[in-house]
């Protein structure tokens, strides 16, 4: 630990924290995949309702994406705003 100042240590830990925060990307990925799969099977069953199904699917996916984006915002704040340095 010699030669590492407290400031540098906090920057390093912030970078690790930002990487950990992006684990939040797993959930929306799975959720959007499930939504897209069900959307595809719905179009297969009822091709006439394709536009309605697509817009509903995109809306649901965009809402499901929010939690992942919260993770992104936390990561970006840790990386660029540096809230833990006085």
């Amino acid at each position: 630990m010699n030669g590492i100042s407290g400031q540098d240590f906090i920057f390093g830990c912030s970078a690790i924290g930002a990487g950990l925060a992006m684990i939040a990307g797993i959930g929306p990925g799975v959720g959007q995949g499930i939504a897209a799969g069900h959307g595809a099977s719905a179009v297969g069953r009822n091709p006439g309702a394709r536009s309605d199904i697509t817009s509903t699917m995109l809306l649901g996916q965009a809402v499901a994406e929010t939690t992942g984006l919260y993770g992104l915002v936390v990561a970006i704040i840790l990386m660029f705003v540096k809230p833990f340095t006085a």
Partner: peptide, 8 residues
């Protein structure tokens, strides 16, 4: 936040 984070 959704709009902001997507564009960012």
């Amino acid at each position: 936040l959704r709009l902001f984070a997507n564009l960012l």
